[in-house]
Nucleic acid binder design. Structure first.
Lengths: 225, 225
DNA sequence: CGAGTAAGTTACCATCGGTAAGTTACCGGC
DNA sequence: GCCGGTAACTTACCGATGGTAACTTACTCG
């Protein structure tokens, strides 16, 4: 148990690494650990040990445990964003844009599986008290905003798209729709974790059918008659 | 500071209460505290002090801090469920059912405001390791399932409804749609917290327009031509 | 009225997030 | 090649807090 075994590296004695490399490695280990065992079941010492360094290094790079989690989320979301953006780029037809985006999204979830489960529900986000802004520490607040930024990124990916295809709708409405889509996708992604038989394409299709045609269409078969 | 001041009660010296009463009181205090200051910013001692008892009582009744949070969530969700269910009961037209449900939902959020913000994202939900089910304690696991039950309750409120109005759709599809709707509503609820100018009715209308008519309708103005 | 039970308390432990101060490897200039 | 500065890294520690064991006190009911 005391055997630390320098984790990732082979057999060489603990080597020093550049900050950038160490950072990536820490994120890899942390993401995996959080995903497998849950956020609060993992201690900073655990992560440090797996990385092959000691705790203060984690704090040097990420400021706090929340900071580390947030950094994981930010990276993961950034990648997700890039994937979906790239997937949608190839389409011209609005429906096709939507379809490709959905498919890319659920395929991404497919790979990152559990990581997504933990990362999706970021804890805290602390709704500060209305009077008096209480900031626990410096770093977390900053990173918390960073994650909020990546979220806005998602909204800003979808909202303008809607505005392009439907210029009639006022801006707030487009934003609301973007939130709706994101929320629905996140939930459906979580749902899929409990239903392994549902493929990514199935999920995308459900989302597509619902969002594109609407409930009216679905209910129509009964009502229209 | 040492003055405990028996919180809720008037001036009488600390009185003993029945378990049921104490439990409710604890939940009231905890819900409020969590909502105002965030989950991990509130200590069990804080809550105990506000209630006018000491920590071990909280543990006697709820087993753990998670257990307490989960109990708050469960109660809150149960009330939400009851409200929406009651609201929908008065309608016959499927569209009206949907509308009333949405409105009741967002009006509930309106009142519980911040409480919802914290309670919506339950932390953990611990994705157990694939091999070997590790249960920390007895109580939390039980309450965790209780919250999962109330979630299913929400799905089970919507899914059969869809199946009633659209018997063509296979059961899994209905369930998927239910998840979509819930996810979208939760997200929209969170979005509203950051946009106070958006009324509950506005939110319900957004959700209605999107879900009922679908994006096809929205895009149609441009594409249909 | 007294005994059992349930509400409640005191005192404590262990873990873990977070930090200060010191140490060692590496790198570039002379 | 040696030297000094910087940046990676460590040891050793603290305080808060989740959680528990053992004990005490009030209420109830036969």
């Amino acid at each position: 148990m005391a055997r630390v075994s320098r984790a990732t590296a082979g057999a060489a004695k603990r080597r020093r690494m550049s900050r950038a490399d160490r950072e990536r490695q820490m994120l890899d280990v942390a993401e995996r650990a959080f995903a497998e065992r849950g956020y609060h079941a993992v201690s900073m010492d655990d992560i440090a040990e797996q990385v092959g360094v000691t705790k203060p290094m984690l704090y040097e790079y990420f400021g706090s445990k929340d900071g580390l989690l947030l950094a994981c989320i930010a990276r993961c979301r950034a990648e997700l964003y890039e994937r979906t953006r790239a997937a949608m780029a190839g389409a011209t037809d609005p429906k096709d844009v939507f379809w490709r985006g959905l498919l890319a999204y659920f395929e991404f979830i497919d790979v990152h599986a559990q990581a997504y489960a933990v990362l999706a529900h970021e804890p805290m986000a602390g709704g500060g008290p209305s009077t008096g802004g209480r900031n626990d520490t410096a770093l977390p607040a900053a990173t918390a905003e960073a994650v909020e930024a990546t979220r806005r990124q998602q909204v800003d990916l979808i909202a303008p798209l809607l505005n392009t295809y439907a210029p009639d709708a006022p801006a707030p409405t487009a934003e609301a729709y973007a939130e709706i889509i994101i929320g629905a996708c996140e939930r459906l992604g979580l749902w899929r974790l409990r239903h392994p038989e549902v493929t990514a394409e199935d999920a995308a299709r459900h989302m597509m059918n619902f969002s594109w045609y609407g409930l009216a269409q679905i209910v129509a078969t009964l009502q229209g008659r």
